[in-house]
Design a binder for these strands. Structure first.
Lengths: 219, 219
DNA sequence: TTAAAATTAAGTATTTATACTTAGTTTTGT
DNA sequence: ACAAAACTAAGTATAAATACTTAATTTTAA
């Protein structure tokens, strides 16, 4: 099942896309945002597989959303929709780290194909985008500025539920006392979980922990 | 003392500028980069007051370097040198957030004046640049495309150079021992700086520190 | 249903951080 | 040249993290 979050400021557009997607048995639209900031909040909250995002949005536009996702290495694929049938944002989207780019004029088939492709880790760019990319590439723009998304390797360790919870809090730079309070357990227990965590991830301090967590996209 | 880092891919140019600058008792060239990426690394490492940067450079050009510095709000003034006697990059430099812009044909006097101006927080743009800026402004180009430097609210605290260095390392989650080693000072000194930092920023743990640092764009 | 896995938490020793203060030395700005 | 600011680093006491081990419960999966 591919969990999708939609971000578009037009309810009608969202409803249309939702209808289209939910005809597919393997895709579920689990939440919707009407602006960029909300989109970021929702992906943190819902951990969807794919974010479908319009470029023109209040608060924060789609390119900025994708940039933020790429920068903070969030574990979600991004499919950018350009609602005004032009390719002016293709390069920007690629540079921002988008996994896919579609124009408004795309067919239903192309749209579904794009969702499946990005969900499975592949890229999908509409129409004759390769031409645009190549022309930019030879000019050196893409090669210089694109931020390629790192591939997720299978984890060489498995964390328990509690450990994941504690990892989250540790990565928020909380100390064991606060973690213990928050989870209503003894400080000693929090310590143990933290210790086991560090051991499983083979790190010996916070810096290494955060690096490892980023490497395996646990944050 | 004004600490300067030079970034230019021509050793000869660097040597010339260095000679010129080091005649001044209040200016020290503390490091040199031969491309844009290196320049960024060096300013992180050395925390100079001023970066003098050529536009044409391999890896990353001068405009991109300045853009990156502006975006990440690094505490360094930027003086852009255009080595081909034209003013075509003035607007781009301003948009990128440069503090100064000089042409190759500038006199020694003008050059030194520019360095001092930007070091003291003022702007310096060569020749009749105001004309260029104005003509662009009325055409709407600057207004439309400029990346305005986000207004930094005046900090309710002031950090010394050393404290900024230590802040950077603390934000990298390094411990005092490692910081001390990296900066070649005693662990106790690192502790003091860290302590003073936390007090100035009115925070009591790492989590609050990072939040505050984000709030005031120190990271 | 029962063994394995997970969660809980205490004990102990060592290292590191926190919260200061004091104070000598160096750098700076005027 | 001289005071102010910055940098350095020591001392002291307390709190927290690290690095384990042991072991009692509770949950979960075959």
């Amino acid at each position: 099942m591919i969990d999708v979050v939609l971000a578009d400021d037009h309810v009608l557009v969202r409803d249309g896309i939702k209808a289209l997607l939910e005809d597919q048995s393997d895709i579920a639209v689990i939440d919707e945002a009407s602006n960029g900031k909300e989109a970021l909040q929702l992906i943190s909250k819902n951990k969807p597989d794919v974010l479908i995002v319009d470029i023109r949005m209040p608060e924060m536009n789609g390119i900025e959303v994708v940039t933020e996702i790429t920068k903070s290495n969030k574990d979600v694929k991004t499919l950018v929709l350009s609602m005004h049938d032009s390719e002016e944002y293709v390069v920007q989207s690629i540079q921002a780290g988008a996994d896919g780019y579609l124009l408004k004029g795309s067919s239903k088939e192309e749209f579904l194909k794009a969702v499946h492709k990005v969900a499975s880790g592949e890229k999908y760019f509409t129409g004759d985008v390769s031409t645009i990319i190549m022309s930019n590439f030879v000019n050196g723009n893409v090669a210089k500025t694109s931020v390629p998304k790192t591939k997720i390797k299978p984890l060489p360790f498995k964390l328990t539920k509690r450990e994941k919870q504690i990892l989250d809090l540790v990565l928020e730079l909380k100390n064991n006392k606060d973690i213990a309070e928050e989870l209503q357990i003894s400080k000693r227990t929090a310590e143990v979980h933290r210790f086991n965590l560090m051991k499983k991830l083979e790190v010996k301090n916070l810096m290494e922990l955060t690096n490892k967590a980023k490497e395996f996209q646990l944050m």
